[in-house]
Amino acid sequence: MEIEAVPELPEQWLVAHREGDSDAFGKLVQRYRRPVFGYLVRCSVPESDRDDLFQDIFIKIHQRADQYDEARPLHPWLFTVVANTVRSYFSKKKLRSFFVWEPAPEDVKDPAPDSEARASTKETAAWLERAIEALPMPQREVLVLATIERLPLKDIASILAMPVNTVKTHVRRARLRLVESYERRTRLNHDG
């Protein structure tokens, strides 16, 4: 009996899935669950919606598997679906809050940080998460793809449908801001 070798590259998984391999899609999900979920977290998708959006993304990938050209790397293709889903999620959310002419719920949170939050800002990761969250959306998208997903700027331009120079501007501004908040935090820690 001949056992077909399981392909090892994600690209091949998607192709195998397309060809009818029932396990391949599950492998793909396992391979990409962290990057995709991480993207949702870093792009400030509220916790309550993350799981649903995560599922939506993979359903879309499933449905569009046919559109994927296996000669090209999977990573940018996949993140195009991710980024677009997140964008349309936010635009729909805006739309909803807009029609009722009320601030979206996340807009009305108490501006004064509570003591717990204040304590946690001292932790390394927390300040960075906050600083990323404070970036404008395009900068955040670009930064996450560039520094966390380590995607080349050219691919990011394709994913986010922006000119490469715009991507460069966003990534530069994002880093400048992070450095700025890093320095502010360092000063604060020194002062008290």
């Binding site: 396992q30 669950r33 962290r34 979920f37 991480g38 960075l128 880093r175 450095v179 890093y182 320095e183």
Partner: peptide
Amino acid sequence: SLSAVEAELGALPAADVEDDVVATL
């Protein structure tokens, strides 16, 4: 400062989805 930020970016803990969400999916 930039190097420190880059280092911290690289060390950000990976967020992961719950296993049962994957199972449901």
